[in-house]
């Protein structure tokens, strides 16, 4: 029987036009200088969606680049996976609306899945499953996020870190005889849900006049219940435990050693977290790819953006084995290996 092996064919990304620079942030948060913001976050600029620009708009533009830069035609896409926590509506499914906007065939499956920083790994896992069980030939995996719309402008803890972006990845069936994507490690710990959350707007807590009341926290940040809240210390502690464990488990499952990995691409959470994880795992710095300087933390898009940048900088080449690790909101985490083809 002919092999049905999933491979990553192409990755594209799209950034909104508006720039949020450290100069703007230093004006809004006078306690911090431009230099201090760059030194602490490692970020030079974040890109922010326009007022009426949705995550799906960025996602459609990223996906259109796939059709420009590959031989895959839109009528060949038989599954669209959209990872987002900024959907257009509660319902319908944003991926269904994107099927129409992208001119994908009616025979195409489409679904949204709600994950953040671990989302790209889960998307690759779903795409691999669809392809290798014969359900799809060409899967379009889109990650699209506009956290900026959830952020209070006076909340330094998140405004300095997050940027908006979307990516599109074409995952195709090939006849490769060896596994190209995988194995996978997944993990979930819902006890951490409260540490990275937009409390209102869903069914659990409705938006109201009371929920919109802005209060100052103990660190001088302002937000209401309708805004994104992040407990940075708790998130950091979670990653200190979950990420090294996921890396070890993935190496065990794949029978590989650290030295067998040509490039490590972790979710680009922030400079501090990445530097610490790199040191803790004793990874060689030249194999630990960094790409947040011009985007900030773009949630589920950081890993595909980094992959694209690593390719264009020739840090990732055909034949390389790359380890991808996503972790964050949920808590949710995932890790996988990809042999670059």
């Amino acid at each position: 029987m002919k092999k049905k092996t999933a491979i990553i064919k192409l990755i594209e990304y799209e950034l909104p036009e508006c720039f949020l620079t450290n100069e703007i942030l230093a004006t809004d948060f006078p306690d911090w200088s431009v230099e201090r913001i760059e030194q602490k976050t490692g970020i030079r600029v974040r890109r922010i969606a326009a007022q009426y620009e949705c995550a799906s708009d960025l996602g459609v533009r990223a996906a259109e680049k796939i059709f420009i830069n590959s031989s895959c035609k839109r009528e060949e896409i038989d599954y669209l996976l959209l990872c987002t926590q900024s959907p257009d509506y509660f319902l319908p499914t944003t991926a269904c609306l994107m099927q129409d906007r992208l001119g994908l065939p009616n025979s195409c499956g489409a679904l949204d899945f709600n994950l953040g920083c671990s989302g790209y790994i889960y998307g690759l896992g779903l795409a691999k499953g669809l392809i290798e069980t014969g359900q799809a030939y060409n899967v379009l995996l889109v990650t699209a996020e506009t956290y900026s719309k959830y952020i209070h402008p006076s909340d330094r803890s998140v405004r300095t870190l997050f940027g908006d972006a979307a990516t599109a990845t074409l995952i195709q069936r090939s006849s490769a005889t060896k596994e190209i994507i995988g194995p996978f490690v997944y993990g979930t710990d819902g006890t951490g849900g409260k540490n990275l959350i937009v409390p209102t707007g869903g069914s659990r807590l409705l938006r109201s006049k009371e929920s919109a009341e802005v209060v100052e926290d103990e660190h001088g940040n302002f937000r209401s219940q309708d805004h994104l809240y992040m407990n940075g210390a708790e998130i950091f502690t979670f990653t200190l435990i979950s990420v090294p464990n996921a890396v070890k488990k993935l190496l065990f499952l794949s029978g590989k050693k650290m030295e067998d990995i040509d490039l490590f691409i972790f979710h680009q959470a922030n400079k501090f977290m990445l530097e610490h994880l790199c040191k803790k795992l004793k990874l060689p710095e030249n194999k630990f790819f960094i790409s947040f300087k011009d985007y900030g933390n773009t949630v589920s898009s950081t890993i595909p953006i980094a992959l694209n940048d690593a390719l264009s900088q020739e840090k990732l080449r055909a034949g390389d084995l790359v380890m991808l690790v996503g972790f964050g909101v949920g808590y949710s985490w995932g890790a996988t290996l990809v042999r670059w083809v």
Partner: peptide, 19 residues
Amino acid sequence: DSLAIVSFIAMIDESLGIT
């Protein structure tokens, strides 16, 4: 501040291996 707390957690993790 909040950044110092994260930094403190990191330093203790690094020097003593305690989370």
